[in-house]
Amino acid sequence: MSPTKHTIVALVEDRPGVLNRMASLFRRRGFNIDSIAVGRSETPGFSRMTIVVDGANTMVEQVRKQLDKVVDVVKVSDITGQDIICRELALIKVKSTPANRSEIMQIVDIFRAKIVDVASDSLTVEVTGDEEKVNSLYNLLRAFGIKEITRTGRIAMTRGGLATATELQSAKESKTKE
């Protein structure tokens, strides 16, 4: 079975060491994590992780099941085949001169990105969108010279209903009974 890029979302208790334990499971299985993004969730005391990894479906499913057994993990889902919303944020510092500044600004405008910093020799661009949009803008700006880039990696969630605090608490309680 050929490797596929998987998007795994985990709701975890906001405690030190959780990220390390989760990343170690992927490392032990020989997976390279393409990106990992962690931030607070809608429920105080919980964080949501989005992990993008390449791997065969069966291997990723095994790792997902092992992640579900980590004490601080409340819920883990491989949302790869679902109807999802994905976004990434990038900050791109581009070399600029007075002669090419307006051309860069036009390209940025086409991508509905923003210029967030202007210096005498550079512009810093903020772009948000799917990975393809970020890559496309980056590839166009490369012609001017990239001084620096930073990317968040993918963040994602399924479309539709929202998990309530009660559902999250139920998931946590059922896990502690196991």
Rank of each mutant, 00 (worst) to 15 (best):
D34V: 14
G39A: 13
D54L: 09
R40S: 06
R15V: 11
I8Q: 05
D34T: 07
V125H: 08
D121M: 04
Y138T: 10
R159P: 09
V18G: 00
T4C: 10
G129M: 15
R159I: 04
N139E: 14
I51F: 04
D109M: 04
D78M: 12
K75I: 06
T166S: 14
K65H: 14
D117K: 07
T176V: 15
K93N: 02
E126V: 10
A113G: 02
P3L: 06
E103T: 05
D68M: 08
K69N: 11
R151P: 00
S47H: 06
G153K: 01
V74Q: 03
T124D: 00
K75C: 10
E131G: 13
E13P: 07
S77T: 04
M105L: 13
G160M: 02
K5S: 12
I115N: 06
K69L: 12
R64P: 01
D83I: 08
L67Q: 02
V63C: 01
D34R: 13
T152N: 11
V74Y: 01
G17T: 11
V53M: 05
V116W: 03
A113K: 03
I115Q: 09
V108I: 14
L25Q: 09
P3W: 05
V38N: 03
Q82E: 15
Q66L: 14
G39F: 04
C86Y: 10
T80F: 04
S41P: 00
G129F: 02
V60D: 07
T166D: 13
I8V: 13
I110P: 05
I85G: 04
G55K: 01
A37K: 06
D68F: 04
R15Q: 12
F46N: 15
Q82N: 15
M1G: 12
I149H: 00
V70R: 06
D14F: 07
A56G: 15
A99F: 09
I146C: 01
I33W: 08
K133S: 04
N135Q: 13
L162I: 15
D14T: 14
E167T: 08
G145F: 04
A171K: 03
A165G: 03
G145V: 01
I33G: 01
G161I: 09
F144T: 03
R29T: 11
N20W: 07
M1R: 10
G153V: 09
R142I: 05
G17K: 07
V71Y: 11
S41M: 03
S47C: 13
I115W: 02
R112C: 14
D54Q: 08
V60Q: 08
D117F: 01
K93S: 00
L89C: 03
V12D: 00
S102E: 15
V94C: 08
I85R: 12
L67E: 00
T166Q: 13
I107K: 08
S102P: 09
S2I: 11
R64Y: 06
Q169H: 12
K147M: 10
F26G: 02
G45S: 15
E42W: 00
T128W: 05
V125P: 10
R48F: 06
V127N: 01
